[in-house]
Every structure is written in C-alpha cells, then in structure tokens.
C-alpha cells in the first residue's frame, strides 16, 4: 500500500512543481538575460553577487531542487514506459537517482558556500561589495 501513495504523490508533485517552475524559470531568465545589459552582463561578479543575497540563495535552491526532482520524475516515468528489460531498467533508474542526488548536493553546496570575494582576485572581477585588498 506504500507505493500507491508514492505514485499519487508523484503525479500531484509534477503538476504543482510545474506551475511553480514556470514562475521561477521565467523570473530567472528575465533577471539573468534581460535586465541590466542582458546576457553580456553575466560574469563572476554578477553570479557571486546574486549568490551572496539570501533571497537569490533560496530562489536558486528552490529552482534547483524543483527542476531536478521534476525532471528526474519525468525521466523515471519515461524509463518505466519504454525500458522493458528489468535489469536495464534497474540500472538506468539507479544511475538516474545517483546523478540527481549528486547534482542536488553539489548545487546546494555551491549556492550556500560560494565565496563571493576569493582572496587575491583583481577587484574589477569581483562584486562591488567586496572589501578592497
């Protein structure tokens, strides 16, 4: 009876996360690619500056987790639908789970532990709030 709840949960999750992701992705695209010089403005200073802000930290965390889990569940469904050999299916599902967990852990670590002002970097490459060396 446990798997039954999971399938249902997965189905609901796909719908809810899909709606949230539309908002998150288009905000992300607008802020990164359209505003203030657009795509050319993206450099270390821009990214580090964003990731030093708690709002963008949690925004990016939500985007990362939701997108990865949404995509992984979609891939799981595709594998279930199309891969009929039980062993191959198991291998693919395991690879999928491992890669997702790895990406989520690494991504979350980067978001929360990135040093926006690494020592010994010229000031013009760093966000404006970094103390002058």
């Amino acid at each position: 009876m446990k798997t039954l709840r999971l399938e249902r949960l997965g189905w609901i999750f796909m719908r809810l996360s899909g709606v949230v992701l539309i908002a998150l992705i288009f905000t992300h695209l607008t802020v990164n690619l359209m505003q203030d010089g657009g795509v050319k403005a993206i450099d270390f200073a821009f990214v580090a500056g964003k990731l030093a802000n708690p709002f963008w930290q949690w925004f990016d965390t939500a985007l990362l987790w939701l997108a990865l889990i949404h995509g992984t569940n979609g891939m799981r469904v595709v594998i279930q639908d199309y891969v009929l050999r039980p062993r191959l299916r198991k291998v693919l599902l395991t690879l999928l789970a491992v890669s997702t967990v790895t990406l989520i852990v690494l991504g979350t670590l980067v978001i929360f532990t990135l040093d926006p002002c690494p020592a010994g970097t010229p000031a013009d490459l760093l966000p404006s709030f970094c103390p002058a060396v």
Partner: peptide
C-alpha cells in the same frame, strides 16, 4: 480507488 491508486493504476495514464 485504492485498487486504481496502485503502481499500475490511473497514474500510469499519460
């Protein structure tokens, strides 16, 4: 509904 909530139930519909 409990039967159709199972792994091979309605949620497999695409």
């Amino acid at each position: 509904l409990d039967i159709l909530n199972s792994k091979e139930g309605v949620w497999r519909c695409r």
